[in-house]
Amino acid sequence: MPRAALAALSAAVATALLASCTDSPEQQSGGTGQAAAPAPTVTGDGTGSQPAATPTAVGPDAATRVTGRPGAPRDVVTDLDVPWSVAVLPDGSALVSLRDRAQLVRVGADGTPEVVTATGEDGRVPGVRPDGEGGLLGVAVSPTFTEDALVYLYLTAADGNRVVRAPLDGLTLGEPEVLLEGIPAGVNHNGGRIAFGPDGMLYATTGDAGQADLAQDLGSLGGKVLRLTPDGGVPADNPFPGSPVWTVGHRNVQGLGWDAEGRLYASEFGTDRLDELNLLEPGANYGWPYVEGPGGDDDFVDPLLTWPTADASPSGLLVTGDAVYLAALRGQRLWRVPLDDGQVGEPEALLTGELGRLRDVVLAPDGGALWVLTNNTARGEPRPGDDRLVRLPLG
């Protein structure tokens, strides 16, 4: 379809799609109970039954060298209240964001969880206004953390979503500095994943905030993947001069990861038909709201893979040396997609129904396992000990 025709149809298509989608795939989970979570509890040493391994810094390059199939899950930390993201620190500890509490939990190299004190009321991260799927979402660690001690956060504020950074000193988070604001926020579709790429730039995913037409509007930060310098500036080689926009036409991206060649993969929520795994190219258009799944239109990039929304609703994503892993919410499983030089194989479902809704997946600090974060205390049916961070050894 010509671009002029697409533009003319924009308002009508967006209105129709919004009218047909009253619930986010995140919400279609079969339960709405929420358990009051006690303080996070340590249940392991972070490495299963073995002593904690020597911690190593794990970044995009290290992750792509790891291969192997995951084994049986073992709890690392339990009783987390609506956790959203995990980021590994160079000393082998990790940060977990709690969406509704606006808090960070630092998980020690031995698996001991401790709440981080921030500068807001009651020690919470200041400026966070949880609402629906919004709150304290993505966490990323500066590539030069050993020199600058900076932690990056994606959060929902009263006037929209924003990206901030703050210094971390042990269990104390300093006053956040706003790097980017004005990202549309809504009850649903806030995006929220942030990650540093192998190029040293900060990537952030945004949702359409329930307004589908924003995804095609280059004047809006909604429905995009953004690329920033570490201090919040616009890189000179971004595809749209003077803009942080890297790719357009997204409904709700919540997972990012790079392979050994620097290719960027992203997971994306569909509306009522197909969820997607995409390969992101700078300046490319991924079709929302005109296309869900493959469209066969030269103006848009088709996904690498799709799933029925009942089987996926993919959030966090990890790329290793031989696979892409996607944490599925509504699908309540961990998808393993074989990967060979940018080519994907037949997806395999792991942990189906065993842990409930899955929000994030990262490489464990020792590099020998996956860490998977559950998400049952917001929606779904919490189990004793939920929510939890679990370890799956790679072998």
Rank of each mutant, 00 (worst) to 15 (best):
P303S: 05
T64H: 09
D45K: 10
S49A: 13
R162I: 00
G331H: 03
A378T: 07
E281V: 15
L98N: 00
P143R: 02
I183A: 02
G296I: 12
D322G: 14
T156M: 12
E181D: 13
N190I: 01
D45M: 10
P25I: 15
G123D: 06
T352E: 13
W246R: 00
P239L: 04
V225K: 07
A94Q: 10
A8W: 13
G316S: 15
V88F: 03
T43R: 15
K224E: 05
D159V: 15
H189L: 01
P83M: 01
L389G: 03
G207R: 06
G296A: 08
Y265I: 05
N188C: 07
D199G: 06
E26Y: 13
S85G: 08
V253S: 06
D322F: 11
R333M: 01
L355F: 13
V139A: 03
E175D: 13
E381W: 07
G293R: 12
V76M: 10
D387M: 07
G71R: 05
G134Y: 03
G48H: 07
D311S: 08
L89A: 02
Q50P: 00
P382T: 11
L256N: 08
G207F: 12
W258N: 04
G207I: 13
D272W: 13
R124L: 01
L221A: 02
D61R: 15
I194S: 00
N376G: 00
E381I: 05
A63P: 04
T56F: 08
Y286E: 06
P314L: 11
G233E: 00
L137N: 09
V361W: 01
V58H: 09
H250R: 00
A166K: 05
P184D: 08
T117L: 09
T15D: 14
P289S: 08
G270A: 07
G200Q: 07
V361L: 05
V372R: 00
G191C: 08
G219Q: 02
A140W: 00
L394K: 07
P176N: 03
R333P: 04
A266I: 02
W335V: 10
V128E: 00
G46M: 05
S267M: 11
G182A: 14
G197F: 08
Q50G: 01
D259K: 11
G192H: 01
S315I: 06
P143Y: 03
G385N: 14
E175L: 06
G287T: 14
R129Y: 02
D299C: 12
R359E: 01
P294C: 07
G283S: 11
G192S: 02
A8T: 09
R65E: 15
L228Q: 04
T78G: 04
L363R: 05
L363W: 09
G321F: 02
G111E: 03
G257D: 06
A157I: 12
P167K: 15
E175M: 09
S97D: 05
L18F: 03
R273P: 08
G293V: 13
L355S: 00
R99Y: 05
M201N: 07
T377V: 06
G138L: 11
S313R: 09
A209V: 04
D110S: 09
P235N: 10
P25N: 07
E133M: 01
A12M: 11
A12Y: 10
S267R: 06
R227S: 04
G295N: 13
A209N: 02
D302F: 12
I194M: 12
P184I: 03
V337D: 11
L351M: 15
I194Q: 04
A266K: 10
A94H: 13
V361F: 01
G295R: 14
V344R: 14
P60T: 05
S267Y: 08
G395F: 08
